[in-house]
Computed example of a mutant assay.
Amino acid sequence: MEIQIRQANQQDLASIADFQLTMAWETESLKLDLPTVRQGVAHILNNPEIGCYWVAEYQGEVIACLLNLYEWSDWRNGNVLWIHSLFVKDPYKGQGVFRQMYDFLKERVQNDPDLRGIRLYVEKTNLNAQKVYEAIGMTKEHYDLYEWLA
Score class of each variant (00 low, 15 high):
residue 85 S to K: 13
residue 79 N to L: 09
residue 102 Y to S: 05
residue 89 K to T: 12
residue 97 V to G: 00
residue 102 Y to E: 01
residue 125 T to L: 06
residue 136 I to P: 06
residue 73 S to H: 08
residue 90 D to W: 01
residue 121 Y to N: 13
residue 127 L to E: 15
residue 48 P to S: 11
residue 127 L to I: 13
residue 130 Q to C: 07
residue 116 R to I: 06
residue 49 E to R: 11
residue 59 Q to A: 13
residue 70 Y to N: 01
residue 50 I to G: 00
residue 96 G to Q: 02
residue 116 R to T: 06
residue 65 C to D: 05
residue 61 E to P: 04
residue 112 D to F: 03
residue 78 G to E: 06
residue 76 R to P: 07
residue 104 F to Q: 09
residue 103 D to S: 11
residue 110 Q to S: 10
residue 61 E to C: 05
residue 109 V to W: 09
residue 89 K to D: 08
residue 54 W to S: 10
residue 125 T to K: 13
residue 132 V to W: 04
residue 78 G to S: 04
residue 77 N to K: 13
residue 58 Y to G: 05
residue 60 G to K: 04
residue 129 A to P: 11
residue 108 R to P: 04
residue 72 W to G: 03
residue 135 A to C: 06
residue 72 W to A: 02
residue 95 Q to A: 09
residue 47 N to G: 02
residue 67 L to R: 02
residue 62 V to Y: 04
residue 134 E to I: 11
residue 124 K to M: 13
residue 72 W to Y: 12
residue 134 E to V: 13
residue 105 L to F: 08
residue 76 R to F: 07
residue 77 N to E: 15
residue 79 N to W: 13
residue 137 G to H: 08
residue 102 Y to W: 11
residue 63 I to H: 01
residue 63 I to E: 03
residue 117 G to L: 01
residue 119 R to E: 07
residue 127 L to V: 15
residue 102 Y to I: 03
residue 80 V to L: 15
residue 91 P to E: 01
residue 113 P to S: 13
residue 80 V to G: 10
residue 119 R to V: 09
residue 133 Y to G: 01
residue 104 F to I: 00
residue 111 N to Y: 10
residue 93 K to M: 03
residue 103 D to W: 03
residue 101 M to K: 02
residue 99 R to T: 12
residue 72 W to F: 11
residue 90 D to E: 13
residue 57 E to D: 10
residue 110 Q to K: 12
residue 89 K to H: 02
residue 131 K to S: 12
residue 109 V to L: 06
residue 74 D to C: 12
residue 115 L to N: 01
residue 132 V to I: 08
residue 102 Y to C: 07
residue 100 Q to D: 00
residue 64 A to D: 01
residue 82 W to D: 03
residue 123 E to S: 10
residue 77 N to Q: 14
